[in-house]
């Protein structure tokens, strides 16, 4: 009996590290890495071989200005959105059913429809009310694509930020409210000094994601004729038919998003260092 067991060929046991030096996974991993390396090298050689100094002369500065426009657009929208998100989150959290329903409708609309449709609705849709807007003297605002983009993006991000804020405030344990009121603190003091600081720590990560989403989403502004990074890229491509325009844009967006992600991770690690175990 024992002999039989010993002579039976050992079957490869799954889950146990293989004794082979080159497991299938290792081979696959290296093959894919070689593919990435080749793709990177191919891209680099394409960028060098087809490098057009004239293109850089003419459009290099445009890319920089587009980059700045993108940052301005995102920064401004996020700021306005943050301010708008406060009353919306408060309404969502309020006991009043009416306020809750209004805020829920607002949030549902802006989270459930594409940003591009919202931008069109504001920029082109404002034309339907031209006479009315002219009469009350705000037509200058809706005539300008820049204001329309900021308007649409601010409302959009305010809906997302309100949800982040609401979720993180509700996430703070009830015991925190009870303990604070047992100490005789007033409601505003409890909210500002005890609940909000804890909520914001929870909210840090989703806020970071929202900033990244906003940077990526802002590319849509190019469609309503704003010359942000994407807009400048499309203009450069349509005039020069040089595909490198898109590669440069990709590099700039990746650098922007990756830098932000890294900085935000540092920032978060720093702010939550007292929670480390």
């Amino acid at each position: 009996m024992t002999e039989q067991v010993e002579t039976a060929r050992p079957r490869a046991v799954p889950g146990v590290p293989s004794a082979r030096r080159w497991s299938n996974e290792k081979i696959l991993g290296h093959v894919v890495m070689v593919f990435w390396a080749l793709a990177g090298a191919g891209l680099l050689s394409y960028m060098i071989r087809d490098f057009n100094p004239e293109f850089m002369d003419r459009y290099g500065i445009k890319f920089v200005s587009g980059f700045i426009v993108t940052i301005e657009l995102v920064g401004l929208s996020l700021l306005i959105g943050a301010i708008l998100s406060l009353p919306i989150a408060a309404m969502r959290l309020s006991k009043s059913r009416l306020f809750g329903a209004i805020a829920y409708g607002f949030v549902y609309f802006f989270r459930g429809t594409p940003l591009i449709a919202q931008a069109f609705l504001v920029y082109y849709g404002a034309g339907s009310f031209r006479d009315f807007f002219s009469d009350i003297g705000i037509w200058w605002f809706f005539r300008d694509p820049w204001y329309c983009a900021v308007f649409a993006f601010s409302l959009n991000t305010s809906a997302y930020q309100a949800e982040i804020l609401r979720g993180s405030i509700q996430n703070v344990a009830r015991g925190q409210w009870e303990a604070a009121s047992a100490l005789g603190l007033s409601k505003p003091v409890i909210f500002w000094k005890i609940i909000l600081p804890q909520a914001l720590i929870v909210a840090l990560r989703p806020y970071g994601n929202e900033v990244v989403l906003m940077i990526k989403g802002s590319a849509i502004a190019s469609i309503i004729t704003i010359y942000d990074l994407m807009g400048e890229t499309r203009r450069a491509f349509s005039r020069s038919y040089d595909f490198q325009a898109y590669i440069w844009a990709a590099i700039l967006y990746l650098v922007m998003v990756e830098t932000l992600r890294r900085v935000w991770d540092r920032f978060e690690a720093r702010l939550t260092r007292h929670l480390k175990r």
């Binding site: 940077i215 990526k216 802002s218 994407m230 967006y253």
Partner: peptide, 18 residues
């Protein structure tokens, strides 16, 4: 792992439009 992470970094970092 590195190969998969390169992929995610690229496609999560680029705007969908781009």
């Amino acid at each position: 792992r590195a190969a998969a992470n390169i992929y995610t970094t690229i496609f999560r970092g680029l705007p969908e439009l781009l």
